[in-house]
Amino acid sequence: MAKALVIDDSSATRMILGKMLREIGFEVKSAVDGQDAIRCLEEGYLPEIMLVDWNMPVMDGYEFLKVVRNREAYNDVPLMMVTTETEMDRVLAALEAGANEYVMKPFSKEVIIDKLAMLGFGDEDEDEEYG
């Protein structure tokens, strides 16, 4: 089962995204901010995809991106920026700094499946999908 890491300061959002990803067939862990996520990575959880909220306290998505892209162990883990349209100006900066994809809140399961497919996830997982 592919592993995902959801990083968001809102526990409700973590719950919603976690649910969505599990339905698609991911194993999901979550972190409350960038620092927490780094701790999670350092503890040995190596995800195949990270969904990162951009606006977080302590360490925001952008800082987190810069940290992981500078660490050999994680610099190739695909990172999807989870954002809103008020932050469109940040999307470009994020993609430039090494984010692989972005998705705007709120999104449906179909949208996230499409986005994940762009990163090469999908075909084999789709069978596990239900509902």
Binding site: D9, S10, A12, T13, I16, D53, N55, M56, P57, T84, T86, K105, P106, F107
Partner: peptide
């Protein structure tokens, strides 16, 4: 900003469109 941003971001998932529209302009 983050507080309203978070509420807005989450309520969109849950389908509370009225709440979303209010928090959206607030966020702006």
């Amino acid at each position: 900003f983050r507080t309203i941003h978070t509420i807005k971001g989450t309520c969109g998932f849950l389908g509370y469109s009225k709440l979303e529209s209010v928090t959206h302009v607030g966020e702006n």
